[in-house]
Structure formats: C-alpha cells, structure tokens
Computed example of a mutant assay.
Amino acid sequence: MLLQKITENLSFRLFTVDDAEEVFTLINNSRTYLREYLGWVDLTTEVKDSETWIKTTLQGMVETGGFPTTVAIIYGGKIAGTIGIQELNRANRSASIGYWLGEGFQGKGIMTKACSSLMDYGFNELKLNRISIKAAFSNEKSRAIPERLGFREEGHIRQAEWVYDHYVDHVVYGMLAEEWGSYQK
C-alpha cells in the first residue's frame, strides 16, 4: 500500500519527511477543531514535531514487517488527514482503524471512502477477521463513519481517554470479515 487510488481526487500514500511542514500546517489550521477529541494536538507546536511523528510512523513499518500503520489521506493533491490500522493482532487476525481529518476537508465523504478502502485492505490483503473503530461518545462526526459503513455498536467504554483536562467515553464499533463481505454486495 505505497500508493492507493480510491477515487479521482482521493488516494492514500506513505508519508515522507518532506510532508512535515504540510502536516504541521494542516494541524495548526485545524488546531481548535482537532483539539476537542485528540489529546496530542497541543504536543505539536512546530514543524519538527510533525517530522518526528512521520519518522516514527515510518519506523513502525520496520516493526510490522513492511506494513504501514498510518498513511496520508490525499484529497485534491493535498494532505487532508491520516488513517491507519492500529492495534494489529496477527494471532487473532484483528485490528482497529484510527483517523483524523483537517477541518477544511470535513463534509465531503472523504473519511467514509478512506475507511471503506482501508477495510478492504484489512480484510482482503491482511486477511483480518475483525476490525474495530473507537470514537468519543460525543464525537458525532467520527461515530457516523462506522455507522455509515455498517459496523455494529458493541459497547461503551467509560472514561476511556484523557483529553487535556477531562476524560471522554468511547463507543466501540466492530465489523467481521463475513459481515463486510455481505455489506459490500
């Protein structure tokens, strides 16, 4: 999955260190928006922070045997956000999907298409049996993604994540390979 075209204007690609400034600018321009649900935003204060993060994601490919855990979502030739398969458990053939999108890219169906494409990759290429998505209970936009894609709501995790000065609850959604196959038909 070095480069994957999803639609004419939408694709995935690996990050490069040269993306650091664009990623930082995207975060900085969406800082207030992203900060509501992402606890790492205040830790990204300069381009060097984005560069370090990109290097860490690229190093993660070594640790997973060449599998990228996070990729850039490219929309109209610009980095719109990130998406990745996390918590990969090869023994149980399960993983979760995590994502974020810059504020200016909201409402275009980008993340739903990106998640669908990544799920195809997870189920068909990685041969996963289960993919989950966790979203903050009050984050309606993020929760709408798995709901649109036919995930089942499986539970509610109380005080699952510390975001700056308070805990947020998470809703857990799950999809099995056999369900994705029938959903896609």
Results as ranks from 00 to 15, higher is better:
Lys113Glu: 14
His166Cys: 04
Asp42Phe: 09
Ser11Leu: 08
Thr82Cys: 13
Glu21Thr: 11
Leu3Ala: 13
Phe137Ala: 15
Gly181Pro: 00
Thr112Val: 13
Tyr33His: 15
Ser94Glu: 06
Gly122Ile: 02
Arg13Met: 03
Arg152Gly: 07
Phe123Tyr: 04
Ile54His: 06
Lys48Cys: 06
Thr82Asn: 12
Ile145Met: 04
Thr64Ala: 04
Asn139Thr: 07
Arg158Lys: 14
Val172Ser: 11
Leu128Val: 01
Arg130Cys: 11
Ser94Met: 06
Ile110Thr: 09
Met119Trp: 01
Phe137Val: 12
Leu101Ala: 11
Arg143Met: 03
Gly39Pro: 15
Asn29Lys: 15
Lys113Leu: 11
Ala80Ile: 09
Gln59Pro: 05
Asp42Ala: 11
Ser11Val: 05
Leu10Asn: 05
Thr44Cys: 15
Ser116Asp: 12
Met175Gln: 08
Tyr167Cys: 01
Glu36Cys: 05
Gly109Thr: 11
Trp53Arg: 11
Phe105Leu: 01
Leu14Asp: 10
Ser30Ala: 05
Leu126Pro: 00
Ile157Arg: 10
Asp18Tyr: 11
Glu153Leu: 12
Leu34Val: 11
Glu87Asn: 15
Gly65Asp: 05
Glu63Ala: 09
Arg90Ile: 08
Tyr37Asn: 10
Thr16Tyr: 08
Ser116Thr: 04
Thr45Tyr: 12
Asp49Val: 07
Ala91Lys: 14
Ala160Gly: 08
Asp169Ser: 04
Leu3Val: 13
Ala177Trp: 00
Lys78Thr: 10
Gln159Asn: 13
Leu43Cys: 13
Gly84Arg: 06
Gly150Trp: 00
Met111Gly: 05
Thr56Ser: 13
Glu178Lys: 01
Trp40Pro: 03
Glu87Ser: 15
Gly107Met: 07
Phe123Asn: 00
His166Arg: 15
Leu128Thr: 01
Glu161Gln: 15
Met61Lys: 06
Asn92Asp: 09
Thr112Arg: 07
Lys48Leu: 12
Asp19Gln: 06
Asn89Val: 03
Ile131Lys: 00
Val171Phe: 07
Val62Gly: 12
Arg90Val: 08
Gly150Phe: 00
Asp120Gln: 12
Lys185Ser: 10
Gly181Phe: 03
Leu26Pro: 10
Gly150Thr: 00
Thr112Met: 04
Leu149Tyr: 00
Trp162Cys: 01
Arg130Ile: 09
His156Arg: 09
Leu58Trp: 06
Pro68Leu: 04
Asp49Glu: 11
Gln184Pro: 00
Trp162Asp: 04
